[in-house]
Computed example of a mutant assay.
Amino acid sequence: MKFKKTYKIIVGVIIFFTLPTLLFFCFLYIKYHEPLPYGSKGKKADDLATKMLVAVNYEAFVGTDVFEWTYKNRRHYKWEKTKNICEVYWKQYKVSLNLNDSRLHKAHVHSFKVDGDLAEKLIRKAVKYYENDSFWVFAPYRVFDEGVKRELVDNNDLLVTYKNGDSYLWILDDHGMPISFKMWTSQFPIDGIEVLWSHWKTTETGAKLPTLIKFFIFGTEITDIKGTG
């Protein structure tokens, strides 16, 4: 009898916490889920992508030697773009990523260099952080990266698909400045969710980077942005 009572309490607690989450997910799925749109490749798609690059000042991005930013007040980055080396800072850790040669990655704890399993663990984490966090800062500049496909949708929007199959539909203003994009990715269970890009900051070199990326009520702040030549 005591076991049954305990079992009912446990089941009740699980339902109490999971049912609202499940219902909320179902609501979001029904309301926002969209199939991946069809687009057309070619000059018009490339022209729209170029228009976006002009709006965010791609030339200034290319001419910037060093970018710095902080992601969600949790991780700080210093990317020496010309050397393609990025230092990743979080908590008491610092990892120097050589993006040209992974054999040259270095890990530190409290300014002391570490090796072995601990170094490998920190490096793996830093690589994951960098790949995720840098995308949210520099995605508009990556539309002509190797292997990226560009398609024009409804004559106004730009569908960008990466090598891993993730797709993003950029919605631009009349000048080509990004307003938002919709996502079809393996990382998110609802296709077509819209993410707003706003509060753009112009760096010292002239490149434009977002300081707020928001979907639903959730916002990601990008602070301490610097770009030096």
Rank of each mutant, 00 (worst) to 15 (best):
D133R: 12
K125R: 13
Y129E: 09
R150G: 03
I123S: 10
A139C: 08
R142N: 14
W136I: 02
Y130N: 13
R142W: 02
D145N: 13
E131H: 13
A139Q: 14
V143C: 08
D145M: 01
K121W: 07
F135Q: 07
A139P: 01
V127M: 03
K128R: 09
F138D: 03
V127N: 01
P140C: 06
G147V: 04
L152T: 13
Y129V: 00
K128C: 00
K121M: 12
S134F: 08
V148F: 07
F138M: 08
F138G: 12
F138Y: 15
K121I: 15
A126H: 05
F135W: 15
D145S: 09
D133N: 10
K128L: 05
E146M: 03
D133W: 09
R142T: 02
Y141Q: 06
V127R: 03
E151M: 10
K125I: 04
E146Y: 09
F138S: 03
N132E: 13
G147Q: 06
D145T: 00
L152M: 11
S134C: 03
Y129H: 15
V127L: 07
I123K: 09
Y129F: 15
V127Q: 13
V137E: 08
S134R: 14
R150M: 03
I123E: 11
V148C: 04
E146S: 07
Y129I: 06
R150Q: 13
W136F: 15
V137Q: 03
V137L: 15
K125F: 02
N132M: 11
D145V: 00
F138V: 11
E146L: 10
Y141G: 03
V137A: 13
K121T: 15
P140N: 04
E151R: 06
F138P: 08
K125Y: 01
D145I: 00
L122V: 11
V148K: 02
K121R: 14
S134N: 12
F144V: 10
F144G: 05
L152N: 10
S134I: 07
K121D: 14
R124I: 00
S134T: 09
S134M: 03
A126C: 14
K121C: 01
Y141K: 08
S134W: 01
V148M: 10
G147A: 03
K128W: 01
Y130V: 04
F138W: 01
Y141N: 09
P140T: 11
E151P: 06
Y129K: 10
F144W: 04
S134K: 09
R124D: 12
K125A: 05
D133M: 08
R124W: 01
